[in-house]
Amino acid sequence: MQYKIKNAVQVKQFNNYYKITICKNITKGKKATKHTPKGKAGNQTKLKNSVSRSKKMVLEKALCNPWNWFVTLTLDPQKYQRDNLKKFIKDLGQFIRNYRRKHPGYTIKYLLIPELHADRKNWHMHGLFSELPFDDLEPHPVKELSEKGYLNWSAYQKRFGFNSLGAVKDPVKVSMYITKYITKDLDKSVTELDQKLYYCSRHLKTAELVSQGRLKDYIDFQMDFEGPYSKSQFVNDYEFFKQYYIEDTF
């Protein structure tokens, strides 16, 4: 039997941050068996759920792990086939594994999201990297990017082509930013190729639920991120918020 909880509070720990979320309504309990609608309606439901789940996981993995670089990885047509995402993913994964073996003193992790170019045919990647050897990084050859502090990863350039690395200065902002690349259009494109919406290193940390409950009274909290069904905010400590809700395990 299902039941609804109004003004539900959830607090999750994301590494050095806490995310406070207030949901107008959440549904708990066992849901009656129901077949997904066929045709266009069913496909839209699956699409929405897939995008939502992927955004949630990308945000958690972005916030719960330390990152040094926001990266853009493209492909040089003189060096690599640009329209084969499956091959790109496979070869990039092997490239990173080999690179790790050559640099054992570095914790090299990644979280990457594919994106089609404007031509709707060729692929590139956006995402996050942790440690990379500084000996392998150099001022970016494009003057406009170099003047903004972007670097070039020479090992990637030799194997695949153009890239740019920008230092992560605000982990929350960059984590929120990369989720914008998870779209319905991307889901449709990668599903047709039997690929994923994002790719990441194994064993990345995810968020931990530390508290939940109900607001004592509905208070119109102004939060940084507000939507039609919920609102949320990242804070360094959530002790101040405990006075406003009653903890409950649901």
Rank of each mutant, 00 (worst) to 15 (best):
M176W: 04
K109A: 09
I113P: 10
L186E: 01
K86F: 12
T179V: 13
N163T: 09
K184F: 00
I113Y: 11
E131P: 04
D136E: 11
K79A: 05
Q78N: 14
W153T: 02
L186M: 06
T72D: 04
K158W: 09
D135R: 10
N84C: 15
G93D: 15
I178T: 05
N98K: 11
L128M: 07
N84Y: 10
V168I: 11
I96E: 08
S154H: 09
E144V: 14
R120P: 01
E131H: 04
T107W: 06
A155F: 01
I96W: 10
P171Y: 01
D76F: 05
H140L: 03
N98Q: 14
I96F: 09
I178V: 09
L85M: 12
H117I: 02
V174Y: 01
S189H: 15
F129K: 03
G127L: 02
T107L: 07
I108Y: 02
V174M: 04
P114R: 05
S164C: 14
H117D: 03
D185G: 07
L111V: 09
Q94T: 06
P114C: 04
M176E: 08
K86G: 13
V142H: 06
N122D: 13
K180Y: 06
F162H: 15
F95C: 06
K180W: 07
F160I: 07
G149H: 00
L116A: 07
T74S: 12
M176C: 15
G166Q: 07
G105S: 10
L116H: 01
V190G: 09
Y99S: 05
K121Q: 15
I113G: 05
V142E: 08
L128T: 02
L132F: 03
D170C: 00
D76T: 06
L116V: 00
H126R: 01
P77D: 12
